[in-house]
Simulated scan of single mutants.
Amino acid sequence: MTRVLTLNLQHGLSREGTATTAEQLAGAMSGVEVDVVALQEVDRGQPRSGGLDQAGVVADALGLPHVRFAAVLAGDVRRRKASPARWGMVDGAAYGLAIASRWPVVAWFVTPLPRLPIRHPVLANGRVRLRDDEQRGALAAVLQTPQGHLSVVSAHLSLLGPVAAVQVRPLLRSAATLPGPVLVCGDLDLDPWALRPLARGWQFPRALTFPSRAPRRQIDHVLARGIEIERADAVELAVSDHRGLLATLAH
């Protein structure tokens, strides 16, 4: 039985919205038993989160020795949000995606996704502001499991529904070329009704994940191709404004 968790980590914030220490972040994973975790909104070396390697902290807490991290943004995100010069690879402070696994990673890939090229209005604190559509992307890892290759993708799509819908197509086309059964995990920012026509041929189970305290929507998903998901559970943790989505694979 293989268990895969996807979680938008919200850069390690507690449910009260405060930064967590390494001990608190590790403690939030207590009692969670998984073989693979796909993370989004992960800080590495960021001052706002105490300079932690959050993917490493989570992986150690879950007993997962094989970790890959891909930067979507480089530098101190409190000051400016800049895409890295070499997409996915950054020395120093970064923010992005991660995958941690019980099994060795035999290959891994990072891919930027298309984004809205112009600034767009958002409502913040009762005022309309213009902001850039943040760079989004995907991290894929091919794992060598006892049953053979399993490919896992961690992705985070745009907050803008129409843009997220555009991003899904290249994401799934790319994922479908990976070896073995494939899982596409992440905060896709799309409800099941919007995702269904874009993900024909993929299984994705239902469980409400957002907001964490009283979830009304499912925007976090595990999409499966070539393998069946036996069950899925939304898992409330002591971190993040999302619940994790735990998928149990039928093999």
Rank of each mutant, 00 (worst) to 15 (best):
L150G: 01
A165I: 04
R86L: 15
R119P: 07
D191Q: 15
G244Y: 00
G126K: 08
G96F: 06
C185L: 07
R115P: 00
T145L: 11
Q167P: 05
Q147F: 09
V90I: 13
V72G: 02
F69Y: 15
R115Q: 13
S158A: 11
L150A: 02
G180V: 13
S151R: 01
V67L: 15
I227M: 07
A234S: 15
R80L: 14
H221D: 05
L139V: 13
P192H: 10
E16C: 04
D35L: 09
A26N: 08
S49Y: 04
D53W: 03
V4L: 14
G180W: 11
V36C: 07
L195E: 08
A61K: 03
V4K: 03
L62S: 09
P179L: 09
G45P: 11
V105P: 06
G17N: 06
E16V: 06
D132S: 08
D76C: 11
V122I: 15
R243N: 10
G126R: 07
R15Y: 01
A22E: 15
L159Q: 07
A199E: 02
T177G: 07
A100Y: 01
Q135P: 14
A26H: 08
A107R: 14
A59Q: 04
S158M: 02
A164L: 06
H11V: 12
P84R: 14
R225A: 13
D241G: 08
V153D: 00
P146N: 13
G45A: 13
L208I: 03
G88V: 11
I227V: 15
V110M: 01
P162M: 06
L183Q: 08
P104V: 02
V77D: 03
G17F: 08
D241F: 09
A70M: 10
A124K: 14
W202R: 02
P84K: 14
W193N: 05
L157W: 01
